[in-house]
Structures are given as C-alpha cells and as structure tokens.
C-alpha cells in the first residue's frame, strides 16, 4: 500500500505549486502512471480521496493517464519488443518509458 506514500508526495508537490501561484484551490490534476511503475491506480485514487480532505485538492478532479512501457535497443536506439527480444544488432533492450509516476499538469483557481 505505498499508494498512500505516493499520494502524500503528490499533495506535498501540489502544495508547492499552490503556494507559488497563491492559488485558493486546485481544480484538476493530471497524473501519468507507467504500466511498470508498480502503482495500483484504483488504490491510488482511493488514497487520494482519503487524504485530500482539508487540502487545496479537496474538490479537485484527478485525471490518471496510463503510460504503456516502451523499450529501445540500448546500442542502436531502435524500438524493441521487450527484455526477452534482443535487437537485430545484438544490443540489449532498455526501458525508456512506462516506469514513472508524474504530475503532468495542475489547474488552479487563483484570485
């Protein structure tokens, strides 16, 4: 259940944006979650619903974007099917996206 820790990090991060913009509240958050980030998005949403009370996110909409994994050959950069499929050049596949959790966009009410 590290989803709670991730929500904690999200709220902390959002607070910094709110302070900087002197916003009164947050209207919408867009968070991208990699397929291989090890985050259960259902639990993540549930944790967000629980912990956002009495924060600027209390009425915010949470938009979660799923990011599929993408592999590339570490040697020649061509797209690869996965870790078990070595490239024609003999290079090993490396993960280039789909393993991260990112606050992409935040919409705040200012004024």
């Amino acid at each position: 259940m590290h989803e709670y820790s991730i929500v904690e990090a999200l709220l902390e991060n959002v607070q910094e944006h709110v302070d900087r913009a002197r916003a009164r509240s947050v209207r919408k958050l867009v968070v991208s979650v990699g397929e291989r980030a090890g985050l259960d998005t259902v639990l993540f949403r549930r944790a967000f619903e629980t912990f956002r009370e009495r924060t600027p996110c209390e009425h915010a909409e949470l938009d979660v974007i799923d990011v599929p994994v993408r592999w590339e050959c570490a040697r020649c950069g061509r797209g690869a099917a996965g870790p078990l499929a070595p490239c024609a050049c003999g290079g090993r596949a490396k993960l280039v996206s789909g393993d991260d959790i990112v606050l992409e966009r935040i919409e705040m009410e200012v004024g």
């Binding site: 991730i6 999200l10 902390e12 009164r24 968070v31 606050l103 919409e107 705040m108 009410e109 200012v110």
Partner: peptide, 23 residues
C-alpha cells in the same frame, strides 16, 4: 480577475511534469 478586477476566479494551468518520486 487581473484583467478587469471583476471578482471572477482565474484558472491557472501549469505544465508541471514533476516526478513524484523525485524527492
């Protein structure tokens, strides 16, 4: 509202791209 001071709420959108595990 900064344009005319009408009292409406202004929506500010920030492209953050902040990794949540960055700290």
């Amino acid at each position: 509202c900064v344009e005319c001071g009408c009292g409406d709420v202004e929506i500010v959108s920030v492209e953050a791209h902040d990794r949540l595990l960055a700290k």
